[in-house]
Amino acid sequence: MTMETNFADEEIGLLLTDIVDRYGYDFTGYTMASLKRRIARFFIIKKFPSFAELRYALLNADSLFNEFVEEITVNATEMFRDPLFYKALVNEVFPVLRTKPFIRIWHAGCSTGEEVYSMAILLDEAGLLSKSLLYATDLNPGALETLQKGIYPLDHFRQYAENYSQAGGNQGFSNYYTARYGFAKFDERLQQRMVVSTHNLVSDSSFNAFQLIICRNVLIYFDKELQSRVLSLFTDSLEPLGYLALGAKESLRFSGVENSFTPLSIREKIWKKIA
């Protein structure tokens, strides 16, 4: 912590430009404070003697770059994060989804997928899972591997079970996984309804039309311009009257798409697209 890791913005800027040129990943629209913190963390973990060494090493080893992407993009996620948000989805959005012959949901920037499994469980309890597909995307392939395995450490499951109840879950959370050696493996039935793919919100385009897009605690890492662009991408990827759900501290303000939506729950950050 005490090591000097307050890199100059110019240094970080050069590194990001190198990365776009070499690997095609564009982090230049990310907020600097958080990105710097993640890069400093990577610098310390990998014990680089200087920033120049880090820059050189990153550009010359693909495997190191993969680790870099994981370190700077993986962000803590949990099951049923903000349980009342899920409760609002179940009470206010599910009744509308129920009327559709087929349900497509996009979890954009889903990281290791805890929230995707949460959604699958609630859809199952509502009797909607068999007609739903959950598209789970993230730019980090390592995170998606975890999601595809469906195996998570049991440490947090006591908290998850509490969240599950608060979210309105009523079938017994433990029915959805088998616990062994400190890990829980989710029922494959849940995973069968998931379509998992890498997708970079910065550079990739729309790939389907959805009734619900969930993107929570991703936009906080983007600058205003990138936020606007990604929100436009979501707007274009929603069916008329589709729903958009963001994280507790995210909104459509200043985005240019605000007028395309009407708030469904201001508190739980759910919007409905105007036809």
Binding site: A33, I220, K249
Partner: peptide, 22 residues
């Protein structure tokens, strides 16, 4: 500072939020 987020500051002095590990 909002619960469950780290509160950071950008170069222009503005708030920035981060939901990474505790």
């Amino acid at each position: 500072a909002p619960a469950d987020y780290h509160l950071l500051f950008e170069a222009d002095g503005s708030f920035s939020l981060d939901a990474s590990e505790k």
